[in-house]
Amino acid sequence: MYSPRFHRIAETDRPKIVLTVDGRPVDAADGDTLLTVLMRHDGWVRDSEFDGQRRAGFCAMGACQDCWLTLADGQRLRACTTVARTGMAIVRKPATHD
């Protein structure tokens, strides 16, 4: 069920960038949004706070707010409107606070 979901159809010759997702290095193309990176990686963005079910965004245009995620430095970002940059570290399972 949690397999890559977005399929590239063109523009495959862009410069590569590398970021990490839950500690593992993941390749992306320059210009990919974080939503695209995650959907091409393993197909999910976050767990719902309330039922633990996986979410993978919905509107892709910054309206539904269902794609907020956390970087290792604590920054909160909206995946679908943030273009990936080399070195970004996405952490989907944050350590519990206490």
Partner: peptide, 11 residues
């Protein structure tokens, strides 16, 4: 509709 793989049409 909250499952991964379901998007808005515009999305």
């Amino acid at each position: 509709w909250t499952q991964p793989g379901v998007y808005s049409l515009g999305g």
